[in-house]
């Protein structure tokens, strides 16, 4: 039951991505190309998503717990550090090169296009590489102290 509900939520998200144009790298890159053939559509995607989630979260957080779990699992980090800013800056560079972001690419896998699989494969490799780097640095820090 729980998995069926989560599956349906995934369908809603994937449909939103597909209808909005976020799964189309040409459209995404044109949004960021103000000096070229600018397509401002993505402002409407962000605006629609943000307004809905902002209002929706307000209603959800009026509850003490979610419906199918014991507690809300929200990110606990609070500090704005170099890792957050550097990582986000890096993400933007990659997004500008490829035109896919993770949320745009995952639903686009359903189209079966090889380009989406090439991007997603590299995305997963990048996540694994970054995690490996992080744990290597953490190990060295522990050894040094």
């Amino acid at each position: 039951m729980r998995l069926a509900i989560v599956y349906l939520i995934g369908v809603i998200f994937g449909t939103g991505i597909a209808v909005s144009g976020m799964a189309n790298p040409a459209k995404v890159l044109n949004f960021f190309d103000i000096a070229g053939g600018w397509d401002p559509s993505l402002i409407f995607v962000m605006g629609g998503a943000l307004m809905t989630a902002f209002l929706g979260y307000r209603l959800v957080f009026a509850r003490a717990t979610p419906l199918l779990d014991t507690r809300f699992r929200l990110p606990s980090k609070r500090d704005i550090d170099l890792k957050l800013i550097g990582g986000s800056a890096l993400f933007g560079i990659g997004w500008g090169l490829a035109g896919f972001c993770p949320g745009g690419a995952l639903p686009a896998l359903g189209t079966g296009r090889w380009e989406v699989f090439a991007f997603t494969g590299a995305l997963v490799a990048g996540i694994i590489l970054a995690k490996a780097l992080q744990s290597a640095v953490a190990k060295r820090t522990r050894a040094a102290t």
Partner: peptide
């Protein structure tokens, strides 16, 4: 290349 950078970022 973009995918790798996005994954790390």
């Amino acid at each position: 290349i973009g995918g790798l950078i996005v994954g790390m970022g």
